[in-house]
Design a protein around this nucleic acid. Structure first.
Length: 554
RNA sequence: GCCCCCGUAGCUCAGCAGGAUAGAGCACCGGAUUCCUAAUCCGGGGGCCGUGCGUUCGAAUCGCGCCGGGGGCACCA
């Protein structure tokens, strides 16, 4: 839409130049904005102010010249006026919006699809919680944001894949295995020393019980080492199944689950270290092996192999990220919890050392979630195992509300998640406000059908019958949907979609109150239905990006 | 000490590739239903945009300092 306006202005500038009224040595970048106050016009540009210097003219005068050309014989513009210090305010004609609406209707559910992504291959990695316990609310936010962002990027024309990285190697897995093993022994009345840094949660006891139910006490005869191998594997699989299931319930699925262990199978961890060593980025000190990240963005070198010969998490992460880049993605997007922010420079540093472009890897930090109940913070201590799991929250407030609450705030802001509010099936709850609009539109269509009004289409309905102010307000908002998609995708800010939907739907509710859609006037009814059909598409499309359902009835 | 995020209405937050009188929801007060869903709509009050300085014709928006809140600074993951 703005593009069209831009073209009209560019055209006006050309004519001004041809007639010698403006010099225009270089074509300026024309920025189209929407005035805060609608009464001023549909669009505005500060172009004249920008041109003041190069043209050596008063901005107001330049604005007047440009307005002259815009007002002269441009059908789509109804008026162009100078305001204030040199703003150009433009009102568009009804046809301009009706044309836009026709195009939106023609595109149907494809409306909003953009190609700014240029089919660039993007890999979005998110959640990637360690398989040592169930997902908590923090992971939930990451899951919702990651998934919604993937949908958004697809809609914006990127070629998106999603991935979950499973840290199924190392100390924590041993710890997990030992924790379950000890709980198992405890339950069977044997002497057991629970590891000091073991996993405390009740889910460990549940897994131990599962094994008892399945295998009885047969593992007691095993050597410690053999038992551990079994308990480690079993616990990991069990927890991972739980995670997969929680995510599925939360409507989040991944294209690929990438196991850290698989990086050993093809020796790629060692290969990465070797490669870095050959290039001189790796050295040995104090019995450990270090990588020279401080040569790049990091403020210290980092250990990749500990004194005991064990690898750090960072070590395999290097191989994993190299693997991701080598798979040919144009952009690697990682969503991390904000507590990992200190980890960003070292990852960037290693990729830089490896000679990859600095633009290929980007981390989005998702800030913390504070759960509130009755105005009180809900404590979330993982150690004691009394944290709120994602599954608990979903069970309490439902998938739609949970997802929406995670997505309605900028992800780099801390989030206060008010459980009482999210749970309410009442007007204070913003999810229902949007969903209700969709249901309402569907209801109008049911009424129309009952009254024998056929489904409208561009041939049967005459859109020029739409003349109400509120109808144009609705059209205008609908038509900014593609721009909203693009801006959200470019800035990777999913909350913009949530805000857009609330604004869009608010205009609809207001329109609905003032004008009846299904009336005796068949022609007008068809035109209004077609407008609402388009609206319904946009709401459904936006909600779909957020992973929130668009109900036909409420 | 260093690093990241945040500070805007009573509360939760938008706005921040500088622009016209700073917005929304909730809460509060007052109204609206013979008719397609009142989970809705309309109206009202409410703001030194944390603070100081700087850049600019113009700053909530950009830069620096300070204050306040959250988080992070492992041979943990």
């Amino acid at each position: 839409m703005k593009e069209t306006v831009k073209n009209l202005i560019t055209d006006a500038l050309k004519r001004a130049k041809n007639e010698g009224v403006l010099i225009l040595e270089s074509t300026p970048d024309i920025v189209i904005e929407e005035p805060k106050d609608e009464k001023l016009g549909d669009f505005a540009t500060t172009l004249a102010m920008q041109l003041a210097r190069p043209e050596k003219k008063n901005p107001k005068l330049i604005a007047e010249i440009i307005c002259g050309f815009l007002n002269d014989g441009v059908d789509l513009i109804s008026s162009a006026e100078v305001a204030g210090p040199g703003f150009i305010n433009i009102k568009m004609s009804g046809d301009f919006f009706l044309n836009g609406l026709r195009e939106a209707i023609r595109l149907g559910s494809g409306f909003g699809q953009s190609d700014i992504g240029g089919k660039k291959k993007v890999l979005v990695e998110f959640v990637s919680a360690n398989p040592t316990g169930p997902l908590h609310v923090g992971h939930g936010r990451g899951a919702a944001v990651g998934h919604a962002l993937s949908c958004l990027l697809k809609k914006a024309g990127y070629d998106v894949s999603t991935e979950y990285y499973i840290n199924d190697v190392g100390n924590q897995m041993n710890n997990l295995g030992r924790s379950t093993w000890m709980r198992y022994k405890e339950r069977l009345g044997k002497h057991a020393v629970f590891p000091e840094d073991g996993y405390q949660g009740d889910y460990i006891k549940d897994i131990a019980q599962e094994i008892i139910d399945k295998d009885g006490s047969s593992h007691l005869d095993k050597k410690d080492e053999d038992a551990l191998t079994y308990f480690r594997q079993y616990s990991k699989d069990s927890i991972l199944d739980g995670i997969r299931n929680d995510l599925k319930e939360f409507r989040v699925e991944f294209d690929r689950w990438f196991s850290e262990a698989s990086l050993d199978e093809d020796d790629s961890v060692n290969k990465s270290i070797h490669w870095l060593r050959e290039k001189g980025f790796v050295y040995d000190k104090d019995g450990a092996t270090w990588v020279k990240t401080s040569q790049f963005k990091d403020d210290a070198d980092r250990v990749i192999i500990k004194q005991g010969g064990e690898r750090t998490y960072f070590c395999s992460d290097i191989a994993y990220h190299k693997n991701k880049v080598d798979r040919g993605y144009d952009l690697i997007l990682d969503l991390w919890g904000a507590d990992h922010h200190g980890y960003v420079p070292r990852m960037q540093s290693v990729l830089e050392a490896m000679g990859y472009s600095q633009d290929v890897f980007k981390v989005l930090l998702v800030q913390f979630v504070t759960l509130k109940r009755g105005g009180q913070k809900v404590s979330m201590s993982t150690r004691s195992g009394e944290f709120e799991t994602l599954a608990d929250v979903v069970a309490e407030v439902g998938v739609d509300a949970t997802r929406f609450f995670f997505l309605m705030r900028s992800s780099d802001s801390h989030l206060d998640f008010d459980l009482d509010l999210a749970k309410k099936e009442s007007p204070e709850n913003p999810v229902y406000y949007i969903q209700y609009a969709h249901a309402r539109v569907c209801s109008v269509f049911r009424t129309a059908e009952e009254q024998g009004v056929p489904a409208p289409n561009l041939d049967s309905a005459d859109l020029s019958l739409l003349r109400e102010e509120e109808e144009f307000a609705l059209m205008k908002k609908i038509l900014t949907y593609p721009a909203c998609i693009e801006k959200s995708a470019q800035s990777q800010e999913i909350h913009r979609i949530a805000f857009y939907l609330q604004e869009l739907v608010s205009i609809f509710h207001s329109y609905y109150k003032q004008h009846r859609v299904v009336t005796d006037n068949r022609e007008l009814t068809l035109a209004r239905l077609l407008l609402l059909d388009c609206l319904r598409n946009v709401i459904a499309s936006g909600l779909n990006i957020l992973g929130v359902s668009a109900p036909e009835k409420m």
